[in-house]
Design a protein around this nucleic acid. Structure first.
Lengths: 210, 210, 210, 210
DNA sequence: CATGAATGAGTGTTCATTCAT
DNA sequence: AATGAATGAACACTCATTCAT
């Protein structure tokens, strides 16, 4: 009986996450307006009414999906840059690959495509996403590039654009995976693609120092 | 009287384009499901019923928007690559800048973001878009890179990934412009950004030949 | 040129009849609300706007269809009864068969089914139809039956019900022809059916006189 | 609380029948296209959306109305013919009168007029109605007539036409009641009319046997 | 006289939201 | 806490009607 209570308890606490997980998949697949709460509830294995026990409205659910999808992203990386002792090239490479392994390749990888699709309908949320995720991500990359330039490992480059040049193919791969890539349009193998991309970029910004 | 008839005639012929133009803006802004035909009609300055004189359904309108947004893209570029006599770096630079000037910066620039957002709901259209636009665009860039490698102007690189690395920041800029960028999230100046991006990339793939 | 003017003239005068003829077919087939003026115009080979040159509204067109469908019915029969010199059985038989040949089997035969279907939406018209067509038809048959009873050819029967018993199968055949019969539900051969029906009825009401 | 639950339960089970009952009335009165679901819902005392909890579409509702209107008809009569021990005239008379009492005079009596009006728009349903209702009804009457002829109670007649001659006035009365009869066109008293009709017919087909 | 492009009110259908159980 | 029947506002689509040509 205590076991049951325990299960129930765990269930109750896990509910919101189960609901947002189901919602994330559908929002990514069909967009905000195109997603029916009936389907979200069905995928989460609950009734439609139950959704309203945890979220005030469809919009509140959407915001929760985005915010929850953001948190894990925020907590990654910063520590890595602070404590890394190897070369800046290895740091950059590690950062991207690790991020892909722990975020990009999971279902959270659908968040960017979702945010892009719905930003027009949720401008405040878009701003929040920008300030929280994008700005911090760029800041992280900026530190890596500056670190490499300071050590002479990277040559002197226009940092802000370089950040984009490095991020863009990674984000594009993610977007692809959740849009045309899901329509049988053929896509790259992520591991190979990331490796080649990094080599190309690192070569492009390599300085004279070893 | 002839002038008026002429006006009416011209109007009737111009209508579909006026309607798809209005629809493109709203589809890009709000997505397919989020766009009301009332609004499309209002933006085009006609009544809702008029839409149905030219398009059988909302879906038909959407497809027309995409297809019309594709045609101008297809007719660009190929001739340029064939006849270009300068350096491959100049060719690549010219291709991107020209494309931006004549396509990317116009309202047709919203098509990629739209296709990405709605591919899940229109898989066949996504395939059509992929086969028609993306494949040809990549082919064009492939020829440029191979031309540069053949002449020794570019070093030996993994071409397929390089294509993405070159395209991704350009496409991302376009996506940004029609998503977060429209929410006051701040964006780059396109001209400067493209120039820096190209310099960075061209430097990264530069070979030993002059 | 005169020939053309003549043609044009004849055309102009024939137009209303062409339009109501086309309308009758569609009204019978699809009902009043189910019939689109587009289709009526198309079937009559004119544009939709032309309909409004001859009829103020869809309702006016419908009423014209019914009224026109009534006139030919009214002018039949009365003279026949007045002047007939043969037996009452032959009169009754001739009346029915002639009516079928000249009205029932033509496209005007669709009017009763139409009136039945739409009476709920056009009560005044239904009353007009009743007073004009049905009452007169019954009166005609009443005279025939009374004539036969007076001569002893028919036995004494309840006339009003007999009228219905005689008419009902004929009307039902007509209704059938324009409803289930048009759905491949199989139907009788009119000539045989009418003959048998008349024999049955005449036998049923036959009196002792020769 | 259990009582309430019971009420709710009973309500849910009764709903479809309530809805089809309301729909039948309106379909009969205004035809399929002329009937608005708003009105059906209002007459049933529910909201428009509720209709869609029980029927997928207006067409599905229509089909349910017809099918439900058919079932009670099918289950009548067959047993009566099998077990009847009296005279064939009494059997025929009893069959018609009983059918009128239990079907014809109820709201189900509107089904034939409805089916006639809409057969053009629902051919498959018309076929279903024909095969299910009409064919069986005729079969029943055929057995009665053959029974009477076998016993010598009825004279030798052309059975198929006789079936129609017997049924037609009954059906016509029903059609009348739901079309012109509802427009104040005056109609017979059903009981008297049926009695007279039966006497007339039975007299017409009477044989020499007692 | 004739056309057909344009209109906009009306209807079938969907779906976020509520609430009695 | 959880359900799911019920709601009603919103939207895609149709079609009778108008009017400039």
């Amino acid at each position: 009986m205590e076991a049951l209570a325990h299960t129930r308890q765990r269930r109750k606490e896990a509910r919101p996450a189960e609901l947002t997980a189901a919602a994330l998949e559908l929002f990514v697949e069909k967009g905000f307006v195109g997603t029916r709460l009936d389907d979200v509830a069905a995928r989460a294995g609950v009734s439609k009414g139950t959704l309203y026990l945890y979220f005030d409205s469809k919009e509140a659910l959407f915001k929760a999906v985005i915010r929850e999808g953001i948190l894990p992203i925020l907590d990654e990386g910063a520590g890595m840059v602070d404590n890394f002792t190897g070369s800046s090239a290895d740091l950059l490479r590690g950062l991207i690959l690790e991020w892909w392994k722990r975020i990009g390749s999971t279902s959270l990888g659908g968040v960017p495509k979702l945010m892009i699709s719905e930003s027009g309908n949720f401008p405040e949320l878009a701003n929040y996403y920008h300030d929280t995720v994008i700005t911090r991500g760029r800041e992280l990359m900026r530190r890596v590039l500056l670190r490499g330039m300071a050590s002479g490992e990277f040559r002197a480059i226009e940092v802000e654009t370089a950040i984009d040049v490095i991020f863009a193919p990674v984000i594009m791969m993610l977007i692809w995976r959740y849009s045309l890539g899901a329509c049988g349009c053929g896509s790259h193998d992520p591991a190979t693609y990331l490796k080649t991309h990094l080599d190309l970029v690192l070569n492009g910004i390599a300085g004279s120092a070893p």
